[in-house]
Nucleic acid binder design. Structure first.
Lengths: 249, 249
DNA sequence: CCTTGCGATGAATCCATAT
DNA sequence: GATATGGATTCATCGCAAG
């Protein structure tokens, strides 16, 4: 089976993963931002913060959006420390973040022992303009490695800017990432290596990993989203088998 | 005269500017990054750090690249504090930075009293790819305001991503910014308002401000670059007059 | 005027060697 | 042992000249 999906809290499950068992950590943790005051950030649900009041979709809420600034940094450090342990030498971490949490994320990454290597941008062409302001049309991918970069182990050349709109049709998660972007990013993991995503959500990272011939280990707390992720990954494999065998006559 | 160029150290000259005399701070300070060890960062010239070993151009060096990490943050805070004082209420700051100094820049901005509002990206299509890595193809624009955003004062909608290559033809500064990008950015300053750039360099911000009908106050330490900036801005005005009057017959 | 081809370049990063 | 210097890497893009 090229993928495993654990159900439970990210930190608890991570602590049970064996040392040096994955090649790349690629994840999109809850941002705990989206609000000017502490109470706006911590007292509201993800859905209230990240979806417009007039949005008509009925996407499910997700947990883990109630930390204040300090505890967010602390919690993220713990998480990245456990992930570091589970990653092989010269393995890579790619962490999605928004502008507000970017400095905290680079701090937490380094606090956890990773060598910070840079920032890439994900540009979302469809985003709301605001009068008298610069549009917040990018999210950011903070990346680093466990020790030195091994150019023999990983021979791809990846871009520093990814452009794609959030999925609209068939979207099942509020902050779902486009699979085409994730497919590019999983190439940072050596072929047939293992990608870890402790916040699997609706499973886009897993789908992308499978499509690119990587193994996948995911963790998801919410049963609602874990069910969706399992289904999407299973469909992906069936589709692959179909492609390989061709239609039966 | 729609522009003024002071020659001297940014901090010293800033301290002599009157309170609330400019509408927007738009600048590209020296980054003091580039290098893994302290001595690599502080002991080498800008040219040694930021130009490829095989480059054939002979652009002049620029000063101010010898601060270590802590003093960079301290110095930038002082600078942004003085700029804050010189800026009107609801005025805007746009500060260029690279990935390494981005967290320090957001800290310094806030330490100086500005309200941090976001990050925009400048994507440079021409940048060196590297094996096993994500390309560093973006620089970042950290932006904030002095107090609340006043949407009546400033009615433009600005993008969050700017794509343009560094000037190639006629480039005079190692880190010269494309005028078309700066022309977009100066629109954050109300029409006929004043843009301040304490690191004027070869004067691209000034040229952009003049083209967009904004006043400009610049500061530049190096006489070499101050001469170039004066010339470029003077040419810009002559060109404008020419455009307005049409060719003489 | 448009197309093709060639050459130069990058706010980079790292390793090997010298001091 | 820490720091300084030199050289190799790599490709999308852009300027320019030729066709």
């Amino acid at each position: 089976m090229p993928y495993t999906l654990h159900r439970g809290d990210a930190l608890s499950v991570l602590s049970e993963l064996p040392d040096a068992s994955v090649d790349a950590l690629i994840t999109d943790p809850p941002y705990n931002s989206g609000g000017r005051t502490s109470s706006e950030r911590t007292g509201r649900t993800a859905k209230a913060k990240y979806t417009a009041a007039d949005a008509e979709h009925q996407l499910a809420n997700f947990p883990g959006e109630n930390r204040d600034q300090r505890s967010y940094g602390y919690w993220l450090s713990l998480l990245l420390t456990e992930s570091y342990r589970a990653t092989v030498e010269s393995g890579t971490a790619l962490i999605f973040t928004d502008w507000r949490q970017l400095p905290t994320t680079t701090d937490a990454l380094q606090a956890a022992g990773w060598t910070w290597r840079g920032i890439a941008s994900w540009h979302k062409p469809v985003s709301r303009p605001q009068k008298g302001r610069l549009k917040q049309s990018c999210e950011y991918i903070v990346w680093g490695t466990k020790g030195p970069v091994d150019a023999n182990r990983n021979t791809v050349y990846l871009p520093g800017l990814y452009q794609a709109s959030q999925p609209r049709k068939g979207r099942v998660h509020i902050t779902q990432k486009p699979v085409e972007v994730m497919q590019e990013l999983v190439k940072i993991c050596p072929e047939a290596g293992t990608v870890l995503d402790p916040f699997a959500g609706s499973g886009s990272t897993g789908v992308a990993a499978l499509r690119e011939g990587r193994q996948f280990v995911g963790i998801e707390l919410s049963d609602h989203y874990a069910d969706i992720a399992e289904q999407r990954m299973a469909d992906e494999l069936t589709q692959d088998d179909f492609d390989l065998a061709g239609p039966q006559e």
